[in-house]
Amino acid sequence: MKTKLFVVFLLFLLCVGCSSERQFLDAGWTQKPAKMKILVTKPTVSDEETLPDVMDPISDWFREKVDHAMQFNSNVPCVVEKISKKKISHEPLNMSGVEVQIPKVEAMSDSFDIYMILDNVQMVFSESSRTVGGSPVGAVMVVPAGGAAMASVASAGITIKGESTEIDADYVVYDVKSGKRLAYGHLEESVFHEEIAMEQGWYENVRQLMLKILGNTPVTRF
Rank of each mutant, 00 (worst) to 15 (best):
D26A: 12
P144D: 09
E81P: 05
L13C: 08
E99F: 03
E194A: 15
N216G: 13
T217W: 04
D26R: 09
Q208D: 10
K2N: 13
M108D: 02
S74Y: 04
S20G: 07
V7E: 15
M1H: 05
T3Y: 14
F125I: 09
V66Y: 04
R207G: 01
I196Y: 00
F222G: 05
K65P: 06
S129I: 08
E204G: 11
M70T: 10
A169W: 12
V105G: 01
G133H: 03
F222K: 15
D119Q: 09
K86H: 04
H68F: 15
M108L: 10
E64P: 01
M210R: 02
E189R: 04
V45D: 06
C78L: 01
M70R: 05
V176W: 06
S190D: 12
L39Q: 09
R207D: 12
K104P: 01
V40H: 00
S109Q: 09
P43S: 04
A149E: 05
Q200S: 13
F112H: 14
M95I: 10
R221C: 01
G185E: 07
I58A: 08
A156M: 03
S190G: 10
M55F: 10
I117H: 02
I167P: 00
S74D: 07
I196G: 02
L11W: 09
A197Q: 13
V54C: 03
L211T: 14
G134S: 13
Q71L: 13
P33T: 08
E106A: 15
V7Q: 12
